[in-house]
């Protein structure tokens, strides 16, 4: 039972805050996926430090496998839509 904030816990909490800010400031979606992955791994470390290994495992599986793939698929779709639109516009011109 931890009653006060240990230096390790304080350190990882600061890193998580920095990571979350970095995700917001990564404007390019592809880059954001990578930054978000790093942020997710920081959260995994936080959960381990706070002695919640089950949550850490869930976070690890979701943040490194499931989530990036779904976002990547969406980005791929959006990009191909954009290029298709641009081509149509070019044809109209």
């Amino acid at each position: 039972m931890v009653a006060t904030l240990a230096p390790l816990q304080a350190g990882i909490l600061v890193l998580v805050a920095l990571g979350a800010t970095a995700v917001v400031f990564a404007r390019d979606p592809l880059r954001q996926i990578v930054v978000n992955g790093i942020y997710g791994l920081l959260l995994v470390v936080l959960f381990v430090v706070l002695q919640a290994p089950d949550v850490a495992l869930s976070m690890l599986a979701v943040t490194t496998i499931a989530y990036p793939l779904v976002v990547l698929a969406a980005v791929t779709r959006l990009r191909s839509d954009t290029t298709a639109d641009e081509q149509e516009q070019e044809q109209e011109e």
Partner: peptide
């Protein structure tokens, strides 16, 4: 130990 069908299932799919 920590883990189970939910987490392991995602890892196997990965």
């Amino acid at each position: 130990t920590p883990g189970g069908g939910f987490q392991g299932g995602v890892i196997v799919a990965g």
